[in-house]
C-alpha cells in the first residue's frame, strides 16, 4: 500500500520524478532549510515507512502541517517496494517499525541510500536502540531515535534519542521538523523503551498481572487508575488502542536488554499478544 497525502498522487509522483533530475540541489541547503516550509507551490516531502496504524497517523499529521507524504506500510504484500523510489528531494524520513526488526532493517537500508546526505532519518527506537540501528546504514550521522509508539505519535512531546554518531545539526533538524508539526521535543538517552513507552508498558504489564491473578476486574482497574491516579485513558483501555503485541515487544526488548525481572511480560499479556483481545468477552 502506498499512501500519498496532500495532493493528487499522480501529480505528486510526477513532481517527484521531475525533482529527481536535480538530485544535488538539496545538498547545498542546510538541514533546517531541508525541512522548512518552502514558499511557493513546493511542499517539503516526508517519507514514512513502517507499521500500521502509526504510518497512517503520522502521515495525517504531516499532511495537516503542510508536508507532502510518501508512505509505505510493512504489512502489504510488496512492503517497501510499493514506493519504487524514495523521493530524492525528501526532506525527512521516518521509520516506524517496532515489531519486525528484519523489516525495519530493510526499511532503513532502503532509506540509507536515499535522500540528501543530510536528510534526517527519524527511526522508532523503543525495541532496538538508535545506535544499533545506525550501524545498519551508511551515513549513520543522519539517524536519530524517536519514541514512536501507537497513541503517542500526536502527543505534545516527542522523545528524541541521538546516537553516538549524531551531530548537533541532525538533532536540531529533528527538533525543527517536530516543531513544524506542533510537537515539542525532549532529548533523552538512547535506551530501549525510552521514557513513556517504558513506564506505560510496565504499568500495562502489572494491570495484566492483576487481571490474570484475579485481583480486580479489568473495568475496575481502569476505573481505579482513571479516578485514583488521573490517567485519563485507563490502562487496559489504553493498551487496547496501542495493541498488545506492541506492548509485549517493548517489554521483551527491555527484558532482553536488562534481564530485570520487572520487565518480564505477564503470561496473560503474551497470550493476548498472540490471540488478540478477548478478556472483555469473557468478563
Amino acid at each position: 500500500m502506498t499512501l500519498f497525502h496532500g495532493s493528487n498522487p499522480l501529480k505528486t509522483k510526477s513532481k517527484i520524478g521531475t525533482k529527481k533530475a536535480k538530485k544535488n540541489e538539496p545538498h547545498s541547503r542546510s538541514l533546517t532549510s531541508d525541512i522548512s516550509h518552502q514558499p511557493g507551490p513546493e511542499k517539503p516531502i516526508a517519507v514514512i515507512l513502517g507499521e500500521s496504524p502509526m504510518v497512517e497517523v503520522f502521515a495525517e499529521l504531516c499532511t495537516a502541517h503542510g508536508y507532502r507524504v510518501a508512505a509505505a506500510l510493512n504489512n502489504t504484500p510488496t512492503g517497501i517496494d510499493m514506493i519504487r523510489d524514495i523521493p530524492a528531494q525528501a526532506s525527512v524520513a521516518i521509520e516506524l517499525t517496532n515489531l519486525d526488526l528484519e523489516l525495519k532493517k530493510k526499511n532503513l537500508e532502503r532509506l540509507s541510500g536515499a535522500g540528501s546526505p543530510s536528510m534526517p532519518i527519524l527511526s522508532s527506537s523503543i525495541t532496538v536502540t538508535a545506535t544499533e540501528q545506525s550501524l545498519w546504514i551508511e551515513r549513520r550521522h543522519r539517524l536519530l531515535g524517536i519514541a514512536a509508539f501507537p497513541t503517542l505519535l500526536a502527543k505534545p512531546l516527542m522523545e528524541v534519542a541521538p546516537t553516538i554518531f549524531s551531530p548537533k545539526e541532525t538533532v536540531e533538524a529533528a527538533a525543527y521538523f517536530f516543531q513544524t508539526l506542533g510537537i515539542g521535543t525532549e532529548i533523552v538517552q538512547d535506551r530501549i523503551g525510552m521514557v513513556i513507552p517504558r513506564i506505560l508498558c510496565r504499568l500495562v504489564n502489572e494491570a495484566l498481572f492483576a487481571v490474570m491473578e484475579d485481583h480486580a476486574a479489568p473495568q475496575d482497574i481502569d476505573k481505579a487508575v482513571q479516578i485514583g491516579i488521573g490517567l485519563p485513558a485507563g490502562l487496559i483501555g489504553w493498551a487496547e488502542r496501542i495493541g498488545w503485541s506492541q506492548i509485549c515487544a517493548v517489554l521483551d526488548a527491555i527484558y532482553n536488554d536488562t534481564h530485570e525481572e520487572r520487565y518480564r511480560a505477564a503470561p496473560l499479556l503474551k497470550h493476548m499478544a498472540l490471540t488478540g483481545n478477548w478478556w472483555n468477552k469473557q468478563v
Binding site: L152, K155, P156, L157, E159, G184, E186, V188, Q189, R191, M194, V195, I196, R198, I199, L200, I229, G230, L231, P232, A233
Partner: peptide
C-alpha cells in the same frame, strides 16, 4: 540510569500520559 532528567520525565508524563 540517566535516560532522562527528573524535570524531563515529569514533563513527558504530564504532557504525554495526561497525569
Amino acid at each position: 540510569d540517566q535516560t532522562a532528567g527528573e524535570g524531563q520525565i515529569d514533563n513527558l508524563v504530564r504532557q504525554n500520559m495526561g497525569l
